[in-house]
Amino acid sequence: MEKVVIDGSESEVVVGDAHSLQNKISAIRTSGSSKLQVIADFDGTLTKYWINGHRGQSSHSLLQQDDPEYNMKKQKLAEYYHPLEFNPAIPLDEKTKLMEEWWGKTHDLLIEGGLTYDAIRNSVANANIAFRDGVVEFFELLEERNVPVLIFSAGLADIIEEVLRQKLRRSFKNIRVVSNRMVFDENGHLLRFKGKTIHVLNKNEHALDMAEPLHEQFGEEDDKGIMINDEEESALKQRTNVLLLGDHTGDLRMSDGLNYETRISVGFINHNVEASLDGYKKAFDVLYLNDASMHGVVKLASHLCST
């Protein structure tokens, strides 16, 4: 096992099998960046776990409705279901049903409580949420190399996209959010949710959705706005190498269903490092400890995209 301190900081990187990692890096570099895609979890992966000594909010928890009664109801649901999510005594099939209940009830409350997009915008503006240092550089590098980034979350797509807009203050044409998406009326009031509910235990079931072409996000246009990239070249299914980022071992399943050739998995252990290290070390190719920055991942991605 390799364990070194990065840039003299408290953050550390752990590589369980350096030989295996080097082989994967070589394979991805040989294939070129045109064959690479990035799949990333959002909360606790792209975002910081700790902010000024306080636990950072998730994209779900930061949302505040205009009606305090519904905020209280959502909080009570979280207090009941959250411990069940991590209860090892509950069988997986039963736990999956419980998570479906939790997400369904929460979404119903958002509709019943009259959630508006203005409330989302205000919630994000007042939230204790921030991206890891280096995330902008990471996105800029991947956009420059035309590498698509799929942010895969059991949260709320509209909130994640608003966090990206407000906190990064710029947009990236190569980023797509795969998450629970809302439908609003012309006045900005929530009407319903689109598609199947994505929760913490079924994220992998939606991996095949990622294989759709993303011309509008990272294809090139002519002067009339017509895509000029060949469809097969710009389809994600042709990108057979994956750089996957997550903060739970379950995030590794985000690539289930993808017909990839080589995958490098990067894990973040944000707290309880000693208790989690052995299990995470076996699961991930590279680990960053103690709520580390994204700078090490930027260096890795730059190396993968170099020829």
Rank of each mutant, 00 (worst) to 15 (best):
K3H: 08
K3V: 12
V4E: 11
I6N: 06
S9M: 00
E10D: 08
S11A: 14
V14H: 04
G16M: 00
A18K: 10
H19P: 00
S20E: 13
I25C: 02
I25L: 03
S26D: 11
S26V: 06
A27P: 05
T30E: 14
K35L: 06
K35E: 15
L36C: 12
Q37K: 13
I39E: 04
D43C: 04
G44K: 04
L46T: 04
T47M: 03
I51H: 08
G53H: 11
R55K: 15
Q57F: 01
L62S: 08
L62V: 05
Q65I: 09
E69G: 01
Y70N: 00
K74H: 00
A78E: 00
A78M: 05
Y81I: 03
N87D: 15
I90C: 07
D93I: 04
E94W: 00
E94K: 11
L98N: 03
L98C: 01
E101I: 00
W102Y: 11
L109K: 02
E112L: 12
G114M: 09
Y117I: 07
N122L: 09
S123R: 02
V124W: 04
A125E: 13
F131D: 10
F131A: 12
R132N: 11
G134I: 09
G134A: 10
V135Q: 13
V136Y: 10
L142E: 05
E143D: 10
E144T: 09
R145W: 00
V147S: 02
P148I: 00
I151Q: 04
F152S: 06
F152L: 10
S153Q: 03
A154C: 04
D158R: 02
E162M: 06
R165K: 15
S179F: 06
N180V: 01
V183M: 15
E186M: 13
G188L: 07
G188I: 05
G188N: 06
G188P: 07
H189R: 15
H189M: 12
R192E: 13
K194W: 03
T197A: 04
I198S: 06
I198R: 12
H199E: 03
V200G: 12
H215N: 15
H215L: 15
E216H: 12
E216M: 10
Q217H: 15
G219S: 13
E220W: 09
D222R: 09
K224N: 15
M227I: 14
N229E: 13
E232N: 13
E232G: 06
E233I: 14
E233R: 15
A235P: 00
K237L: 14
Q238E: 14
R239W: 09
N241Q: 03
N241D: 06
L243C: 02
L244E: 03
L245R: 08
H248R: 15
G250Q: 11
M254D: 07
G257T: 12
L258H: 13
E261W: 07
T262C: 04
V266L: 02
F268V: 00
I269M: 02
N270K: 02
H271L: 07
N272L: 08
V273R: 02
A275Y: 03
D278M: 10
D278P: 00
Y280Q: 03
Y280K: 08
K282C: 09
V286W: 01
V286L: 03
S293N: 12
M294I: 13
H295G: 01
H295R: 15
K299L: 12
K299M: 11
K299C: 12
K299W: 08
K299Y: 08
K299I: 01
A301C: 06
S302F: 04
L304E: 01
L304M: 03
T307D: 14
